[in-house]
Simulated assay, not measured.
Amino acid sequence: MNAKPTHTSPPADDGRKPRSDGEQSRERLLQAAMRLFGEQGFSRTSTREIAQAAGANVAAISYYFGDKAGLYQACFSAICTPVENNIVMFDQPHFTLRESLRGFYQQMTAPLMAGADAEVLLKLFYREMLEPTGFWQSEIENNIKPEHMALAGVLCRHLGVAAPDERVHMLAYAVGAMCVQMLIGRDVVNAITPHLMAGPEAIAAWVEHLTNFAETLVLAEKTKLQQGKA
């Protein structure tokens, strides 16, 4: 979704910088934009402010991203894994239920593995959720919905159900909600039990525990379905 360049050559800050320096300028613009958009929102962040924070020429934004909207979209493109790559981590016909659930949570918690960048990445998403520019609806339609439907399909396979009904959809939402609570409520977790979010090993432990919880939930639902058929 990156905006197409609108110039034939990059606007170097001093007119003599090599191309590699221009590429570094583009990356600095992206990093500065992610931070500022996440902290202030799209409408309250100016291109001049972004350029100043990145130590770049304002004209570089036009060259690399077209305009502020293009830069905003590029921020998400830079941090979003293609939905197909996420789905393949948990939707495989040979996966056991546990393997599928673990893969689902691994792709959901991937942003937290970014270390110091995790806060920036999550803030950007949360800001879009609170002050939608239209990207969030696109994210729901193009990424969240396909992932949900894939998870519903996985649950159907392990529940012995032909197609997802309301019960399966609610189960899929519940499975995802456990991890969403962890992501959105990380400030609460950090305030009460900071060691539970202290680095990749702690996040990996979350994945295993969430997998245990979700597996128990799915198996309980399967037992109910089987009892209903008896």
Score class of each variant (00 low, 15 high):
M1N: 05
T6F: 02
H7K: 13
T8V: 11
P10V: 10
P11K: 07
A12G: 10
D14H: 14
D14R: 13
G15R: 06
G15Y: 10
P18G: 02
R19T: 08
S25C: 03
L29T: 02
L29W: 00
L30S: 02
L36A: 02
L36T: 08
G41P: 06
R44P: 04
T45M: 04
T45A: 08
S46N: 02
R48N: 13
A54D: 02
Y63V: 06
Y64S: 05
G70P: 06
Q73A: 14
A74V: 09
I79W: 03
C80S: 10
T81D: 02
P82N: 07
N86A: 11
I87T: 09
R98A: 08
L101S: 01
Y105R: 09
Q106C: 08
M108I: 08
A110F: 00
P111T: 01
P111G: 07
L112P: 05
M113D: 10
M113P: 07
G115S: 02
E119G: 06
K123E: 02
L124M: 03
E128Y: 10
M129E: 11
M129H: 11
E131Q: 13
W136Y: 15
I144L: 15
K145I: 12
P146Q: 07
H148M: 14
H148G: 12
M149E: 15
L151G: 03
L151W: 07
A152V: 01
V154A: 07
L159M: 11
V161P: 03
R167D: 13
V168K: 10
L171D: 01
G176D: 10
A177L: 12
C179L: 10
M182T: 00
L183D: 02
A191V: 03
I192K: 00
P194W: 00
A198P: 07
A198V: 06
E201A: 15
A205Q: 14
W206S: 04
E208P: 02
F213I: 11
F213R: 12
T216G: 15
K224L: 13
